[in-house]
Design a protein around this nucleic acid. Sequence first.
DNA 1: CAATGATATATAGATAATCTATATATAAGA
DNA 2: TCTTATATATAGATTATCTATATATCATTG
Lengths: 128, 128
Amino acid sequence: MASDKNQLSGNTAMLLLQLLSEKDMYGYEMIETLQQRSNDVFELKAGTLYPLLHGMEARNQLISYEKEAGGKVRRYYRITTEGRKELKQKKKEWEIYREAVAQVIAGCDMGYAGGICSWIGGVGYGIG
Amino acid sequence: MASDKNQLSGNTAMLLLQLLSEKDMYGYEMIETLQQRSNDVFELKAGTLYPLLHGMEARNQLISYEKEAGGKVRRYYRITTEGRKELKQKKKEWEIYREAVAQVIAGCDMGYAGGICSWIGGVGYGIG
DNA sequence: CAATGATATATAGATAATCTATATATAAGA
DNA sequence: TCTTATATATAGATTATCTATATATCATTG
């Protein structure tokens, strides 16, 4: 059975870039921030995050540096100009996708037949 | 390079169930309808669609039947009660996901510092 | 009439994103 | 001391979608 739990479905990079566009963060902090801001919808796994960060760094969207905080050395990430460009692009794509889904779902659910719907009725009977 | 073109990112089943909740359709018709309704954002590939339909039929979310139309035999799909239940669930999950992304993106973009944002400033400088 | 492109369905294999599992290390708390 | 939380990392499995390929009919066009 497909668990359906926790799919970040392709937008993880955008969300991370968004966080880093606000302030420098270390990995674990990103996981927690995403979880908090999304009311526990996003539970990004460490095994997903770190390879992603490494890839983004390799593509010059981020740089990283070590910093000690509370006796513990943490690896902080900072977004680059390239990363901000990428974020802007990803946000645009997300809007387009979101709108497209809305268009499909709006479909013919409204109480009249018109607009993109050229047929009349058709909703109702189920079999199963 | 990741083409970034055409990712339906996990919601294809929901979109197909939505279409079929409005009227019975054959496969190719679903591809065209999705493309039209989404203004060319969704270009679902046949190689993605048919295995998906077969799986949904196996899970009793759809039934299929052959029908001749214009001298051509087409395989039509009809949503079942189970399928409508699944659609309702998927729509709910989509809303939750969409909201969560909005929460993260809203972040601290607004012109004031408050709400979920406890820090001041932080947006601006890039490196790269 | 033959070639081409659109329609229509189908399967196999490749690719990409995420997850699980595992490993390591430090700090805090019981 | 043992356990849990913090913190980073990699390998391998899973899942979704894509590309490529196959087949067949119909419409168009040269």
